[in-house]
Simulated scan of single mutants.
Amino acid sequence: MESLGWVALTLGIIAVLVALMALGWRNRLRRQSDVPAPPEPPADPGPVLYEAAGQYVATTTAGDWLDRIAVHGLGLRGNAVAAVHPDGLVFARTGARTVFIPRTDLTAVQLASGMTGKFVEKEGLVVVTWRLGALRVDTGFRTRHPAHKAQLVAAVAALIPSDPPDHRTPPTPEGREQL
């Protein structure tokens, strides 16, 4: 009889925790309602320059890898294929919306050891920084085969404009850029 009470108490605590997590996610969705949806992939993005299977980790606010972007399914982890095309980067996700990052929105790519609850070995994640409307975001991807990380980083880096507009400093009065 006493053990049934403990089981009921444990189940009640679990139910409250799940309800609080759902409430938190719903509030995050409401706070991020102004975040634009990523563009739809073009009908023909061009030939595949490089492709790697792996896991789409999440998209977060740039530099704040704990601030997951929940809207438009960008915060949902799942299996995916990252494909680099001349027009941009495509994350074809299993069971979720495809994420397309146009070439002109790419700003940086790097390796990291983790983001938003996914922590792996040193430099185990490929993190792509890009512009989503006026917001700078980071998208994490873990390749299935470790040898593919460097190749994916190189393929994405080759797409990044050599002088992205958001990395330029304003001109000085003499017309030269500040260093």
Rank of each mutant, 00 (worst) to 15 (best):
Q151T: 15
A15Q: 13
G117R: 03
A70W: 06
L159E: 01
T172K: 15
F141S: 03
P170I: 11
A112P: 06
E51H: 00
D44W: 00
P41N: 02
D34M: 06
G88Q: 00
G73P: 02
Y50N: 02
A96R: 14
W130S: 13
L179R: 07
L89Q: 00
L179V: 12
V35E: 04
T172M: 15
R131S: 13
P38Q: 01
R26P: 05
V99Q: 01
L76S: 08
D87C: 11
P164I: 04
T61S: 12
H148A: 14
E2S: 06
H85G: 01
R176F: 01
L23R: 14
T116K: 00
F100E: 03
A157V: 06
R168P: 05
A8V: 13
G73R: 02
R136Y: 11
A8Y: 05
R93W: 06
Y56P: 03
L106K: 00
A147M: 08
A134C: 08
P42T: 02
A37L: 00
L20A: 06
L132M: 14
P146M: 07
V71H: 04
A8W: 09
A80D: 03
K118R: 09
R77H: 10
L132I: 08
V18H: 11
R131T: 15
L17D: 14
V16R: 12
A108E: 08
D166L: 04
A134L: 09
D67S: 11
T172W: 10
T98L: 03
L111T: 15
G124C: 13
G175H: 08
P165C: 00
L23F: 07
A83C: 01
L4W: 06
G75C: 07
F119L: 09
W65S: 06
R103I: 09
P161M: 07
G54W: 00
S3F: 04
E174W: 08
H145A: 08
D166R: 04
G124L: 09
M21A: 10
A82M: 04
S113N: 15
T10G: 11
P171A: 15
Q32I: 09
T10Q: 06
V35M: 11
T143F: 04
K122D: 13
R168A: 14
R30Y: 08
V16G: 08
T172S: 14
